[in-house]
Design a protein around this nucleic acid. Structure first.
Length: 427
RNA sequence: GUGAGCGUAGCUCAAUCGGCAGAGCACUGGACUGUGGCUCCAGUGGUUGAGGGUUCGAUCCCCUUCGCUCACCCCA
């Protein structure tokens, strides 16, 4: 047998994990400071949860879901996105009875059966936010502000916020009708895919990258002319708040989103530093979704951040936070003593690494690579003398420390080292 | 699902016209009996992705297959 993982499923090795922690911890702090609480939901749901919310005719539901039958014969699906599960939990546990909005965030793996490429995996991670129960444009702006604030905290530059409105249950069908009428003449000009989209979801034609289709829709009527007065007002107010907040955005009428549940405000944050898959975060309002999944009519808005894509923009690795003491020991009694000492120091919250290797030389080499500032050397000789050697790895100076005061001295020495370097700008 | 490019040591890559599979990094040890980085020396590490064909001889040419990567599609 060959040790080989599944296509599109990646290991995250220790060298990379600091970046993950940095993103996760920063996001957690930003969201919790805004009143959001973490929610953890299962990574599988009954298939209907996804097919009903995302939409039967979407690519995700049609061809990208990991779906199987469990032993009872029920159809189960590995979640391709987070919102549906969160909304299901919101309904199932009656969270609408809490003061609204209900503010939730989540993080974890999503699964889509697609051909992997740069920035696209079959198991990928999202950090997402949902705010349910309020339909005011102020909330749209706050959610977008929070997302933008997070990227600022991560020191990511070269990002662009794109904004659109897809209208509501009332005005979107009108626009689709207008669009389809317009496209009827152009039908022969469209690519085969778009001919299909014309039938199923004409909005997606706007999204097509083929030159023939871009030309065909060059003078297409925009959706803003079809928005009903309340959707138009909503969108104008969201834009107004964002200007007030000095959050730069561009309106892009072509962001359409591949999930059917979106209404009104949709947005996307893209980076020119990524490859073809350039969205690092995306989201929007979904005012009909709670009702569609069997709950009370409830508006909602949220976004999801692509973790791998965001991390790939990090230029430098966040520095190690915690100083370390390295114990190099020789001989049976030295090793036993070191082990006991390690236990005590760890119990007091100090990070302690034990050296392994026959010679002191090899342990010193490992100590050097561990990045420690100090090494405590304890061999059989030191046991006899009743004192340990504390070596400062930077200055190379050494001092003898009687066993009785080892703990105290190490604690003192480690403290001034506890100054992490500042994080410089990412890309 | 479609297309293109690439598979040689743990990693990054060489190998002339088809002629003994190599280097750097990393790892381990030594120079320095119990003291790291720098330097020097040595060692470990290979079914050249797999299978078949052509050939006296294949990492190299041909076929098949698997894998990886990028792009289309779609999306975070």
């Amino acid at each position: 047998m060959e040790a080989k993982g599944i296509k599109g499923f990646k290991d995250i090795l220790p060298d990379d994990i600091k970046k993950w922690h940095f993103l996760e911890e920063t996001a957690k702090e930003v969201f919790e400071n805004a009143g959001y609480s973490e929610i953890r939901v299962p990574i599988m749901e009954f298939t209907e949860i996804f097919s009903r919310s995302i939409g039967e005719d979407t690519d995700i539901v049609e061809k990208e879901m990991y779906t199987f039958q469990d032993k009872s014969g029920r159809s189960i699906t590995l979640r391709p996105e987070g919102t549906a599960s969160i909304v299901r939990a919101y309904i199932e546990h009656g969270l609408h009875a809490d003061p609204q909005p209900t503010r939730l965030y989540y993080l974890g793996p999503m699964f889509r059966y697609e051909r992997p490429q740069a920035g696209r995996y079959r198991q990928f991670y999202q950090i997402g936010v949902e705010a349910l129960g309020i339909d005011e444009p102020l909330l749209d702006a706050e959610v977008i502000m929070m997302l933008w604030h997070l990227f600022e905290r991560l020191k990511l530059n070269y990002l662009e916020l794109q904004l659109n409105s897809l209208g509501c249950k009332n005005c979107r069908p009108l626009y689709i009708k207008t669009l389809r009428n317009y496209l009827t003449d152009k039908l022969p000009l469209l690519c085969p895919d778009c001919k299909k989209r014309y039938e199923v979801n004409p909005l997606r034609v706007l999204d097509c990258k083929r030159e023939q289709c871009i030309n065909a829709v060059a003078n297409v009527p925009g959706i803003f002319d079809s928005l009903c007065p309340s959707c138009k007002k909503h969108f104008d107010e969201v834009k107004g708040y964002l200007r007030e907040l000095s959050i730069p955005f561009v309106v892009n009428q072509k962001i359409v989103r591949g999930l059917d549940y979106y209404t009104k405000t949709t947005f996307e944050v893209i980076s020119e530093k990524l490859g073809a898959q350039n969205a690092v975060a995306a989201g929007g309002r979904y005012d009909g979704l709670v009702k569609d999944l069997g709950g009370p009519p409830t508006p909602g808005i949220g976004f999801a951040i692509g973790v791998e894509r965001t991390i790939s923009l990090f230029k430098n690795t966040p520095p190690e936070q915690k100083p370390l003491i390295f114990l190099a020991s020789l001989g049976n009694s030295g090793q036993a003593f070191s082990m006991k000492l390690a236990r005590q120091m760890r119990d007091a919250g100090i990070k302690v690494e034990l050296g392994y290797g026959d010679s002191l030389k090899s342990q010193m080499r490992k100590a050097d690579k561990s990045g420690t500032g100090y090494v405590l050397i304890i061999g059989d000789e030191e046991i006899k003398k009743g004192s340990a050697i504390l070596r400062n790895m930077r200055t190379k100076s050494q001092e003898n420390i009687p066993f009785g005061s080892v703990f105290e001295t190490v604690t003192k020495r480690l403290r001034p080292e506890a100054q992490p370097e500042g994080l410089s700008d990412n890309i």
